[in-house]
């Protein structure tokens, strides 16, 4: 296998794995206005005017 082919295969594989994981985990899909600000919660909690 040539380097080019290896790069194509690895690049496609990484793209698929990365996109699959991000999608499965739902990263970035929550509405910006509803992220929780509770301590230890999953949201980043910054810049949300509407959260308590």
């Amino acid at each position: 296998m040539t380097l080019f082919r290896a790069i194509v295969l690895a690049g496609c594989g990484a793209t698929f794995t990365g996109a699959g994981w991000l999608s499965y985990a739902g990263v970035g899909a929550e509405d910006q206005t509803v992220q929780s600000v509770r301590q230890g919660s999953l949201g980043n909690g910054s810049g949300n005017a509407d959260v308590k």
Partner: peptide, 18 residues
């Protein structure tokens, strides 16, 4: 258990470009 499909659409676009 909803997914963030945007990442898979991005991957789809990348594969089409490749």
């Amino acid at each position: 258990g909803v997914a963030a499909f945007r990442w898979l659409w991005v991957a789809t676009a990348i594969f089409l470009i490749v």
